[in-house]
């Protein structure tokens, strides 16, 4: 089996998750320079020009190295975003190497991406979805288990990855719950060709989240990363705090969507930019319990991927 680094030309078989508001062009460049695929997250991006700027920033900060190594930059598209048509155009014009997709069906864009030579890697949370996107022409899939931070599905990485590997012929990348070398090797043992990492990369000096958010991650135990929104159908894994506890209480009491939105509106931005750890939404995976230091991205990646 080919490893992801052989498929994409990176140093490590690792994709840095395209985290909304966090994975800027600058952060993607840092991860790409360190040897992973650096993804720009479009979750907080509003216009096509903004995205173009982020891509260009990433390119500028991650130029070809003296030894000939070419850092790999990609974009994460959230397909329910109304600006997706424009974002797709920008990805093609700027010739990014890889596009990962979430929250919807990438079928409509597949032909254009293929024609531009861009690899398309949808994020899936169930094996049947992997089969579906394989038929549409996906180059690989990211099987993301519910240990992960951010929006989650039902299945765990441990159950999802081997079942996905068995149900498709394209390469499978494991995501959710990988923060050290044991988990990396476990992912490969499950049949994955590489991993996508989110939470572990938040605890780095390069990551642009507020210091308070980083501190909260270092302090958190694995069991502090809880899921809100299960009942309403938009489950998100976040750190327990005043806001999320209130949210869960209201949700259980049967509050409607509008009422619940009062809690979450703008809460990710509050956490990321203002460091509001009480009422902000501190998205995090369960691996937060393994993070004890702020370490450079290069060091994190090197440690995780030891063979």
């Amino acid at each position: 089996m080919k490893l992801l680094n052989e498929i994409l030309g990176t140093r490590y078989p690792v994709i840095q998750g395209g985290m909304a508001n966090i994975a800027t062009g600058r952060f993607a460049a840092a991860c790409a320079n360190a040897g992973a695929v650096g993804l720009i997250g479009t979750g907080g991006i509003r216009t096509a020009e903004e995205l173009r700027n982020e891509i260009r920033t990433a390119r500028e900060l991650a130029p070809e190295k003296e030894d000939g190594y070419k850092p790999v930059i990609g974009v994460n598209l959230m397909l329910m975003n109304p600006a997706t048509d424009d974002f797709v155009k920008v990805c093609i014009e700027e010739k990014v190497s890889v596009v990962t997709t979430g929250a919807g069906n990438p079928g409509k864009y597949m032909a254009d991406f293929k024609a531009a030579g861009i690899k398309v890697i949808p994020v899936i949370g169930a094996p049947i979805l992997a089969q579906h996107v394989e038929k549409l022409g996906a180059d690989a899939v990211i099987a993301e288990g519910c240990e992960s931070g951010g929006h989650v599905g039902e299945m765990t990485t441990m159950a999802l990855v081997p079942q996905t590997v068995d149900s498709v012929d394209i390469p499978v990348i494991a995501a959710g719950g990988v923060a050290d070398n044991r988990q990396f090797k476990a992912a490969l043992a499950l049949g994955a060709c590489g991993v996508q990492i989110g939470t572990a990369l938040l605890a780095s000096p390069e990551c642009p989240i507020h210091e308070n958010y980083k501190e909260a991650l270092l302090k958190a135990k694995g069991s502090d990363a809880i899921v809100t929104g299960r009942i309403g159908g938009t489950p998100v894994r976040v750190l327990k705090n005043q806001m999320t506890v209130q949210y869960l209480k209201q949700e259980k009491a049967g509050a409607d969507k509008m009422e619940l939105e009062k809690y979450t509106l703008g809460s990710l931005r509050r956490a990321v930019f203002e460091g509001d750890v009480k009422t902000g939404s501190l998205m995090s995976g369960q691996v937060c319990g393994q993070l004890h230091d702020i370490r450079p991205v290069a060091e994190i990646l090197e440690d995780i991927t030891q063979m």
């Binding site: 409509k108 949370g125 169930a126 049947i128 979805l129 089969q131 579906h132 038929k135």
Partner: peptide
């Protein structure tokens, strides 16, 4: 129906009909 069950329905119908159904 949500996005996951929609795909499940799509695949189950393809199996019964014996031919593929265009995406979407």
């Amino acid at each position: 129906v949500d996005s996951l069950s929609l795909v499940e329905l799509h695949m189950a119908l393809e199996d019964s009909l014996g031919h593929s159904i265009p995406d979407g």
